[in-house]
Structures are given as C-alpha cells and as structure tokens.
Design a protein around this nucleic acid. Structure first.
Lengths: 217, 217
DNA sequence: CCCTTATCTTGACACTGTCAAGTTAAGGGG
DNA sequence: CCCCTTAACTTGACAGTGTCAAGATAAGGG
C-alpha cells in the first residue's frame, strides 16, 4: 500500500535530501549526483538488501528520473562497481581506525585490523556481502582497483612482521586473510547463528591464537 | 538474436530432455517437475550466473509454462532454497568422497574434507557463491536444514580428533571452517587471481600446516 | 458418469534494465 | 546579444521479471 506512493518520493527528496546545497533540482555540473546515487545505493542495501537495489530505486531516492543513473554508470554493473568501491573505502577506514587505536605490537596490530574487518561487516552486512558476492565489476573503473588494493595493502603491512625472512609473504597474508574473512563471512551469512557475533566478538581472538606463523616444513 | 528463439525451447526439451521417461508433456503426478526445475536452475547458474537465474527461465528450460514453478516453490525464495538444498547435497557428497579416498589418519581426513570443500566450489562456482550469498531461505523448507546440517556434521566428525578433552569442540570446528571457507570463498570471488586455484590447489595444505590445535591459554 | 483434486496454463499487473530520442541550461565565440 | 556546443539529464518505449487470479485438464475414486 505504501509502495503506490513511491512516485511522490521525488518531491520529498528535494526538501529533506541530505545534501546541504538546498534545492538540488537543477542540473549539477559537479559530479555530485554520482556520489548521491552511490550513497542512495548503500542506503538501499541497508534497508532492503541486495534484492531491493536497482538503478531506478537509486534514481528515485536521489530525486532524479529513472534513467539518470545510466548516464553516470553506463549500466547496472557500473553502479555495482561504484557502490563496491565506496564499500572498500569504508572497509579500509574501519581497519585503519582500529589499527591506530591499538598498541604498536605486531600481535596487537594484527588483532586490530581483524576487528576492523569484522566491525565493518557487522556495521554494513549487506554491503559487505555484496562486495564479496563475486559480482562482475566494471574493468574500466580504476577507482575500484585503487580502493581494493588499499585494503589489501593494510593487510599486507600488518602481516609483514610475521613473515620469516626469505619466504613468500603471500602465504602469511593469505593465511590471515582466509581465517578472518571466513569467520566474518560465515557470521554474516548465518544470520541464524548470531551466537558468536554482537556479543563483543568473543571467538575471533581465540581463533587467531591458534595460528602458528613459523615456517615448519 | 538467439534470445528471440527462446520460446521454441519447449519443443526441443520434449525430445532431448534428460529425463528418461520420453514425452514429458502431460502433467506428472510424481514430483519430478520439481526436481527438473531445480536441476534447470543449477544449469542456469552454471551457464549464466546468478543474474540469469529466474523462475521463468527455469520454467522454459524444463519445458513448462512460466508460472509452473510457483506451484512447486511458492515464490522465488522457495526456488532459491530448493536449489541451495540440492547444492548442499552435492557439497556433502564432495567432502565425503574425498574423505573415503583418503588415509585414516586424522590429519589426512582433515585435509581430505578441505579438498572436497574446495573441489566442490571449483566445480560449481556460481552455485557455491549462491549457497553462501546470505540470501534469505524459506524457513518452511526442512530439507534445507537437513542437508546443511549434514555438511556441518562431516566437518564436526573430522575435527573431533583435534579437540582436547574438556574443551568446546566448536572452537576447533570454527577454526577449520573459517580457514577453509575463507580460502575457498576468496578464491571464488577473485576470479582475477586464479593463481592459487586450478593448479592442483597448492596453498591450502600449506595454510592448514599453520594451524595449531593445542589449547594454549 | 461425475466429482474432486493435483498439476499445471493463461493472462494480467507492476517493476526492472536498457536504449533512443528529446530537453534544458551553462559557457564560449562571434 | 545571439547562437552553438555540450554536459546532464528527462521522456518514452520495449522486453524481461515475480506474483497473483482465474481457468483448464486429466487421473482416480465413488
């Protein structure tokens, strides 16, 4: 019943839109609509999940016509890539924030980025699942490569102290990444098992304690 | 251009359908259409990915009218749940097969189910991603609970020898599951990095060697 | 022979992505 | 001042989608 009112949405957005520039109805020649559309997409993910995410719904929330997003993103894949890229920015920020709060010991730093990893997923469940859904991304979008590399760089830096000299750092990186990603992803997928999650993430540090970084052949 | 021929698909299916019962055009009173629709869905996942999976496409491949699937699955969630359930059957079979080929030592058995885990994902990439996409499943479908519990049971049995007496087995289970799931999922998501995959899965055993199952407080 | 019931089919509606064509306004050149 | 180009959209159309209501069709029982 509420859905039939959706078309009026555009009127509301003009007045209560989060963009501070007042009336956003005229055409903008900064790229601000693009950013608004991405932000709209992220809020749709939060509200209605991946199923509800569409070019037209983003357009409606941003207060523009249904085909406006296609101008900025070309097609659905373009929108997905932009949303994912924004997600990786927030993802890196979450890990960075935890890392800077933590102590300087390598173990503290490692635990910190893992907590940042999990925190981001808990705070943006649908976005996290979307980022790691295996969706095809727009290979043209270089921004996406930049921000996802940034996330990997944080992991790589933090793992470096645990890499024995002369060995491939990727093994330790993949070890840590697999463990924290698997734990986080399973927690996000299994909504039914919130036992481990929300209650101050009790098990993740316990799991990390089982990792032996030595290179025993 | 080929898409416009799609409607004729029904005629072909009647003759070359994989069901052995010859002409499948009359109504069936065994539940065989349901199974055919699930199988069609799995083949769609393989051919066109999650994007291409739809009730109507399943119907077309099974040679029935567009609304036939709704009778068996109620709605899209019902179809998704049935497909996922079938996926978990194949998943368990893959782990079981590897487990029985392997040696009887706990370490061999553990490595075997991990290989089965990865093998299934590699062989059914889109289905694997779909099963762990966090999609809402039909809570009415008890079959889904049964088959997904079976998969967890295999993991649990294989981890049991590594659980120290008096400790919660779930910690070891989650440790192993997180590592193998994270490794596998990341490999499936990052199509760009097939370096670790396809070439006889070199790194997974290496990662498992870094696990220390002792309960060191 | 008729009635019930399971198993679909047909038709409709609102929603979706995508494309083609039109519109609007800002900024530059004359 | 006018006009032209161009960026940033809007409008309209089409095929595909999920879902629902209503109809059809046969097997099996009475």
């Amino acid at each position: 019943m509420f859905d039939t009112v959706k078309l009026d949405c555009r009127l509301f957005v003009m007045t209560d839109s989060k963009t501070s520039s007042g009336a956003t109805s005229p055409r903008r020649r900064d790229g601000s609509l693009r950013k608004d559309l991405v932000e709209a997409g992220i809020s749709i993910l939060r509200d209605k999940g991946i199923e509800g995410l569409s070019l037209r719904e983003c357009a409606a929330r941003a207060g523009v016509s249904h085909a406006a997003p296609a101008y900025h993103f070309k097609n659905l894949t373009g929108l997905y890539t932009a949303i994912s890229a924004r997600g990786f920015e927030l993802f890196s920020e979450s890990m960075d924030a935890k890392r800077q709060e933590a102590g300087q010991g390598p173990r503290d730093q490692l635990l910190a980025i893992c907590e940042g990893y999990l925190d981001f997923a808990v705070g943006h469940r649908e976005l996290f699942l979307f980022m790691f859904s295996g969706q095809d991304m727009d290979p043209q979008n270089q921004d996406f490569d930049t921000v996802s590399s940034r996330a990997y760089q944080i992991l790589s830096e933090t793992c470096a102290p645990f890499v024995e000299a002369g060995t491939d750092p990727e093994e330790i990186e993949l070890l840590v990444w697999s463990l924290v990603h698997g734990y986080t992803h399973l927690a996000m997928v299994n909504k039914k098992r919130p036992k481990h999650i929300g209650t101050a993430l009790p098990l993740l540090p316990d799991l990390l304690r089982h990792l032996d970084f030595r290179n025993r052949t």
